[in-house]
């Protein structure tokens, strides 16, 4: 455990190990997303009530899952950075934030588009959409706070604290929004609220979720490597590496 943490301290070690892991996750992401797309769009049966508009679930739900998971990972990285002063953890948290915000946007957009055939309107204060919107603001806050500091280290620590505060609040926000929604809109139909999905509807969803997660891991590895280059540009090993990759 401690040996592993000590290794993580070294950006050089992370750079080397991520070079090996990265292709694996890109291949997994490409395959899973392709299979999931073809299966979900063409082979999964249409929903008996919503018809083919139900196929939006295959991008909406994975994006929503990922949006929440990325915020949690960001907070965990922030904690690791604050407790053990591991620079790589902060780099990971830095590159995760924009992807998380993008995924939140995808969940919001696909939810809004889904709303047109289902509710007849682009926006409903649906419980899931409302919590996603709040999550988007939380992401924007973390990104803006990190950028507002002139010293990178202060920005990193401030963003870590905010991510941890946010992650404690996310379940509270989620439950209070759900409660608020059931109080005000008891009879409305939630887009993904029903469990009436058959196995051949579930399977592509699971594949898409795994594909989105692989994409997230691959992209995070790739962008963390870039972030290492950016922050460690003065280090000797980075320069040697640059000369090697000519």
């Amino acid at each position: 455990m401690w040996a592993f943490i000590n290794k993580l301290r070294s950006p050089k070690w992370f750079y080397a190990i991520s070079a090996k892991l990265q292709p694996l996750f890109w291949v997994a992401a490409t395959l899973l997303l392709l299979v999931g797309t073809v299966w979900g769009l063409a082979f999964a049966p249409a929903d008996y009530q919503q018809g083919n508009s139900f196929r939006i679930i295959y991008v909406h739900v994975p994006a929503a899952f990922l949006a929440q998971s990325i915020f949690v990972s960001m907070a965990v990285s922030g904690l690791v950075f604050m407790v053990w002063k591991i620079k790589v953890a902060d780099m990971v948290a830095t590159v995760m934030a924009p992807l998380g915000a993008a995924m939140t946007f995808v969940a919001l957009f696909s939810g809004a588009v889904w709303g047109v055939p289902t509710w007849g309107t682009w926006w409903m204060w649906d419980a899931r959409l409302t919590s996603m919107l709040i999550l988007l603001f939380l992401y924007l806050g973390v990104i803006a706070l990190r950028g507002a500091f002139s010293s990178r280290d202060s920005g990193s620590r401030a963003a870590s604290v905010l991510a941890m505060v946010g992650v404690i609040n996310i379940p509270i926000i989620k439950y209070s929004v759900d409660w608020w929604y059931t109080l005000h809109q008891p009879a409305t139909f939630t887009i993904t609220g029903r469990a009436a999905m058959t196995m051949d509807m579930w399977a592509p969803l699971l594949i898409m979720v795994l594909g989105f997660y692989s994409f997230f891991i691959a992209l995070t590895l790739m962008r963390t490597r870039s972030e290492i280059l950016r922050r460690e540009a003065n280090k000797r090993w980075v320069r040697e590496l640059a000369e090697e990759t000519n």
Binding site: G51, S53, R55, I56, V59, V113, W114, P117
Partner: peptide, 12 residues
């Protein structure tokens, strides 16, 4: 897409 082409293709 059974008449839902705009929505499905826009989201995807």
């Amino acid at each position: 897409m059974g008449g839902h082409a705009v929505y499905v293709w826009a989201a995807w």
